[in-house]
Amino acid sequence: MPSPRDLRRRIKSVKNTSQITKAMQMVAASKMRKAQQGALAGRPYAALMNTVLAEVTANVGDFKHPLLEKHNTGKRAVILISTDRGLCGALNSNLMREAARLDKETTLFICAGRKGSQFVARTKRPLVAEFTYKDPPQFGEARAIAKFVQDLFTKGEVDRVDVLFTRFISTLNQKMELRPLLPVGELLAVEAGMNGDRKGAALERTGVEYLFEPSADGVLGTLLPHYVNYLVFQMLLEARASEHSARMVAMKNATDNAAQLIKDLTIEYNKMRQATITKELLEIASAQMATA
């Protein structure tokens, strides 16, 4: 049985904690709004680029590009986009659980975000590169990551590159996803399958021959790397939006729990105080009766 003084102390410490979580919730909420806007605003661009590329690559005929080629080395690379800081609910543990499922021997990890690289180092998986991304993410950072994996891919060191990140769905819902990034053909097929018939139809249509200005090599040669860069950027945006949303919700829950805890503890404390007073009164009364 705790003493009233212990209870008082406990209430105070819970209050302090709740002040911190409340402050973190506020910070996350304001960052969240900006990050969500960024992620949502970028989606039409990514979707349109996807449609355009799907149509064009399906209709270009004989065209070869290093990013479209298939390799056969039995190795794959995964870009793991995690957060730098904790206290954001199950976001990182979901990512790590999925990462742990990948084959230890044949998977190379490229990490963006400190939590991911800590995990990879701790579980002694091959970590080939570590990147950081700011808040909000900069396009240059995405380009650095994309360039690194493109080099890795074109040198033939890996068969494929996937990205493990958290897609932002809503403030209360973020979904961990493993998306193919390279070779580009595979990525397009996945996107087409996912996003309904407009793109699915585009992949099949082969009647139209596109003209290219200045040339097919010139246009696709710039479009393909740009596409990969931009996709990585969009994924960073999504990951940031998810992070802030998850943190906001986690901190809101913590604050709510703290409030409930304070309430319960205060009731218990008051009961105890009341009991002491009643006991003292009884003692006084009985002492009076004894002397009367």
Partner: peptide, 19 residues
């Protein structure tokens, strides 16, 4: 403003991809 100069487009243009 195409790479190869200005490019006017009307409805029914040939399929074209340009930077």
């Amino acid at each position: 403003p195409g790479t190869e100069g200005e490019l006017g487009v009307l409805a029914g243009h040939e399929p074209l991809m340009t930077t």
